[in-house]
Write a protein that binds this DNA or RNA. Structure first.
Lengths: 231, 231
DNA sequence: ACACGTCTTTGCGCCCCGACAAACAGCGAG
DNA sequence: CTCGCTGTTTGTCGGGGCGCAAAGACGTGT
């Protein structure tokens, strides 16, 4: 309900064409939730009662297989809606939304999702675009997993992360939230050992810089070359 | 425009709650397209001008990687809508829709997609359900590719196919359209050689029967066991 | 300052599965 | 009937990357 939030929302795609009054009305119905790294907004299998908008931070969406291993399905950056699967006919959250860094989100009761879509021009179409973009990303990842080698997949994953959460520094582009080799292995379907070996190699070649939980891409074009398998 | 089509449509989810008159109006605006095995309704990258409803046959949705290998993203069974990605903000078809068997489909100009959604109760929600189901399937496949061995993935793929296109025979459940080892390898991200070896092994064990382009699952529970890695 | 937990690195051996090659079987065309 | 194309089988070989194990680096809390 702070003024801060109002102007913030105005800049976000789902709400960009609304009036101040409309924004305030929407905000009145929202809850704020702040989580430390590692906390979950909701978990796979829970009843999908609310949908969310990430104001700040980063979220990883995790699925756990019957066998018990976790894999990271996608990442969500600030400004994006999440937990909207119910609009697609699911009554349960299909995955877990976990904070990859300290995160702040607004949430609304699920029935308002339909209401917002019906009432506010642009909200629905923005919704679809989010879904469409995610479907494309998932398709790409299926292709990658099917055809690419581990080395290429890891390179691709890093590039994707820089696109979604890259922050320019004087050394290169830094991935703007804490991320471990384990995380990357869960994104690419390999082991943290292999990821560690690859990153070490790349660091020796000056392609990246890396400290604990932090990765900076120095020569992105080299990663592109690797992900395209031009050896 | 045949009577056949009218009653057929009435039974399909997207149109199940419509009146005869509404159905006729919808049909008047539709084109019919029949394709032999191997033909394409549309191709990846083309401008998305029409959306489709599969009346009969089976379709495989293919993506080609920059490197040139094809992978089968998903299969579409009779009664399902396809080519509706434009509703999600894409102006180009994101993949190729190829007939896996002789197929018959209706199609409408893309603008009618919004119109149908707006006018006809149930059409829009049915649409979402299709999208939701496909997203879940894609998520599952990402998990599988990330965590499962090739043998498990192939078993899972066969089970999925029997669910989507299984036809009961006296020998077991038959996959109801022509499918090659190559196809299966493109679904599971492996080579046709490995698939051939696996299927041969399973046939020796009496789990499946297989002739050229035809697969019959005899002991589905054994496949479930394999896909769950209970060796 | 110290101890502890988390994250990371590195080595080694094995096995799955991809690459290559060659032959066979089924089906349609002429 | 025979040819040719497409799909399938089977063998051998080699390597990428996973499992296992252990130690090292970094950050944190007390």
């Amino acid at each position: 309900m702070k003024k801060l939030d109002e102007s913030l929302l105005l800049r976000l795609p789902p709400f960009s064409q609304l009036s101040r009054a409309q924004i305030r009305k929407i905000l009145d119905q929202a809850q704020t939730k702040r989580l430390d790294e590692g906390g979950s907004f909701f978990s796979e299998g829970e009843e999908a009662t609310r949908f969310y908008l990430l104001l700040d931070g980063h979220i990883r969406v995790i699925k756990t297989t019957p066998a018990g291993d976790q894999i990271i399905v996608l990442h969500i950056a600030a400004g994006q809606l999440f937990g909207i699967a119910a609009a697609l006919g699911h009554s349960l959250y299909p995955a877990t939304a976990q904070a990859a860094a300290e995160s702040l989100a607004l949430s609304w009761p699920m029935p308002l999702l339909q209401e917002f879509s019906a009432i506010y021009q642009g909200f629905a179409t923005e919704n679809y675009k989010v879904v469409g973009a995610r479907m494309q990303e998932m398709q790409s990842r299926i292709s990658e997993m099917a055809t690419q080698q581990v080395e290429q997949r890891v390179a691709t994953a890093l590039l994707r992360l820089t696109n979604q959460a890259g922050r320019k520094t004087d050394e290169g582009i830094e991935i703007d939230f804490p991320i471990t080799r384990q995380d990357i292995s869960e994104m690419t379907g390999t082991t943290l050992h292999t990821v560690s070996r690859l990153l070490s190699g790349w660091e020796k070649q000056g392609i990246i810089l890396s400290t604990r939980k932090r990765i900076v891409i120095v020569e992105a074009h080299q990663l592109v070359r690797i992900s395209d398998n031009l050896t």
